[in-house]
């Protein structure tokens, strides 16, 4: 048996025997990505609704910009947030560098364009007639927004889930802001990078399998949500 096949078998064993290190890193990844997506959606779903409901000069330019930023390289965001929270940065005194909190901020920034842009497009896909129906039944601005969001709940949730997937699978922010500190800021992606470079293939394959499975589940659910 060659090394890679053995690596795979050992990796599956690691997962099945619920190896504490595997579990710990997976849980931390989840927790950090979930926090990021929560913060990002609390800010961006309302912000997206505002942009959807208001017509102002430069609106379509703004939406274009947001869409361009969907695929912003994670290291760019990493660098930006690093400059923000490093010792000399404006938020340097908060001591966020190399902490999970710093990572959460970085990932929130990273997935902001995706969530914001997809929220706007989800809302835009709700027909104007439906919005008019709510208004004509006496809905005020806020109630109208709520109704439109409820109509677009599938695509909006899909946007949040995509954000979650991107946060979970990114490595730039996790590495530059988190610093891959064992037991503290080490997550799936940074652990894979490290274990691979140390030749510890079974561990990196195990973590890689978990990451791929999560991505698969996320994508399937996103697909379903679009039609919900």
């Amino acid at each position: 048996m060659d090394e890679i096949t053995r690596g795979f078998i050992r990796a599956i064993e690691l997962i099945l025997e619920l190896n504490p290190e595997v579990i710990e890193v997976t849980l931390r990844s989840f927790l950090i990505a979930l926090s990021s997506v929560t913060i990002a959606s609390l800010i961006n779903v309302p912000l997206g609704s505002l942009i959807y409901f208001h017509h102002f000069p430069g609106r379509s330019g703004l939406i274009n910009l947001i869409q361009t930023l969907y695929s912003i390289p994670t290291v760019t965001v990493g660098l930006f947030v690093f400059l923000l929270i490093s010792r000399e940065g404006p938020l340097g005194s908060c001591g966020l560098l190399y902490t999970p909190y710093g990572m959460i901020i970085g990932q929130s920034v990273l997935i902001t364009p995706v969530i914001l842009g997809l929220t706007i497009s989800a809302l835009s896909n709700v027909s104007d007639d439906l919005r008019d129906t709510a208004i004509s039944l006496g809905a005020d601005r806020f109630q109208t927004i709520r109704t439109v969001i409820a109509e677009a709940r599938g695509p909006v949730l899909a946007a949040l889930l995509l954000g979650f997937g991107r946060a979970l699978s990114e490595v730039g922010v996790a590495m530059m802001i988190g610093g891959n500190i064992r037991g503290y800021t080490r997550v799936l992606t940074t652990a894979i990078a490290l274990e691979t470079s140390m030749g510890n293939l079974e561990m990196s394959i195990a973590l890689g399998l978990i990451l791929i499975s999560i991505a698969l589940v996320v994508n399937t659910v996103v697909g379903r949500l679009q039609e919900w």
Partner: peptide, 17 residues
């Protein structure tokens, strides 16, 4: 809004929420 809340309307091709 206050005026509209006293008006009932049925559109030509009504949409269901």
């Amino acid at each position: 809004l206050a005026a509209r809340r006293r008006i009932g309307v049925v559109f030509q091709r009504p949409l269901m929420l």
